[in-house]
Write a protein that binds this DNA or RNA. Sequence first.
RNA 1: GGAAAGGUAUCGAAGAGGUCAUAACGAGCCGCACUCGAAAUGCGGUUGUCGGGUAACCGGCACAUGGGUUCGAAUCCCAUCCUUUCCGCCA
Length: 427
Amino acid sequence: MLDLRRIQENKEKVAELLSRKGFVAEFDTVLELDKQRRAVIGEVETLKAQRNKVSAQIPALKKAGQPVDEIFKEMRALGDKITEGDAKAKELEDKVFDMLSRMPNIPDEDLVAGEKEANEVIRVVGEKPQFDFPMQNHVDLCTKLGIIDYTRGTKLSGGGYWLYRGDGARLEWALLNFFISEHLKDGYEFILPPHQLGYNCGFGAGQFPKFADEVYWLDCDEDRKKNRFMLPTAETALVNMYAGEIIDESKLPMKFFAYTPCYRKEAGSYRAEERGMIRGHQFNKVEMVQYAHPERSMDAFNELVDKAASLIEKLGLHFRVSKLAAGDCSASMARTYDIEVWIPSMGIYKEVSSVSNANDYQARRNNTKYRDSKTGKPAFLHTLNGSGLATSRVFPALIEQYQNADGSVTVPEVLRPFMGGQEVIKL
RNA sequence: GGAAAGGUAUCGAAGAGGUCAUAACGAGCCGCACUCGAAAUGCGGUUGUCGGGUAACCGGCACAUGGGUUCGAAUCCCAUCCUUUCCGCCA
């Protein structure tokens, strides 16, 4: 949610920044509606003040045996006017709120305009592995090793689902355990949230109303606001934990991580190149979230980027970090860096982590505040999130980058403690 | 799923159509006093939000949520949500 005051004060600047996201801002209507809203509120409040004044005198008048019928008659007319004004104000308020809630977040000043093509690679770690034998892709490797069962996954649930089996399940679990142990070491609090969330969570995270069709809905009430949905990322849960609360400034930054599967429709986004487990309807992810003081959210952001990168680096995988152009950041985010891992068979880098700073965009939507020690007043805090990490790309990258000539796969050293010391996955 | 009770500030809790909503009474927290220090005690402070105003300040709203009745609602009525207890179900 954007701050209407910021729009009021600097319409052109905000419009320019939003245009970098490819969003054509039209503020005149909202501003005009808000002006009307304030005018109506002013009128109604004057009437209410008048009513309150008279109401306060009535008990005394009654006690003194004075006639009140005439006053009641006038008050009734006044009441009708108030009801009318309240309705008008509510209508205007709803319109303003709705319009504001559909606008994307303002990108940070240093982001360049444009889409994916304008992303900037800011760091490359490791090198593309060279193989002195015919390289296999992860689908073939996993199928031959019997560690991922695509056929039976499809049998159970259709396209976009798979089963982890045996050493595959162990490897997946080891990855998650490795991530978890690293976050615990860094002092993040481990959260296991519900996987089914209410509409307000999707709204607060900034994913609704725009992306409400891209999640799986439970229940069948016609009114979506009464239904729950399967979370598309743990961010949707974590970022709403303190909605409507005022957090003591000394508690910031608050650092959390959660493990959940992520459920996504991914309608129409399947491409031939995305075979195997690159894009599924359900994948495992450990998600990090921080609640930060606005003045220190950049520090939190850098910490999250470093954490995500260090995980993939410790796994010994070749990857790069990209600073996303404004248009490639999601609607809710002011700034996003992607960690992208090298998938040898595809010859491209695929996102394994997206680290973002929402600034106060999500906090405004779900009303999460901290008490500022300087002013003593509540203020919106900043929320940040980053995958740490999603396994659905790490797994294929790992299988492919660590493959051996005989079709076996070496287990990265950091994962061995989580796999009972196993060093290699083979038939 | 059924029944009953309930939802008021940081917590406990009173108020049961108006003169008690910043909201009694307890407790907590923050000052200050007393003290060598602490405890105890005493005094003072301690909601959010919206509108107007440079400000001091003025005003509106908020008793789970949304409606209704009324000149006036925490209080009466309706719907929804949630909590607790009991019963049922229990892979």
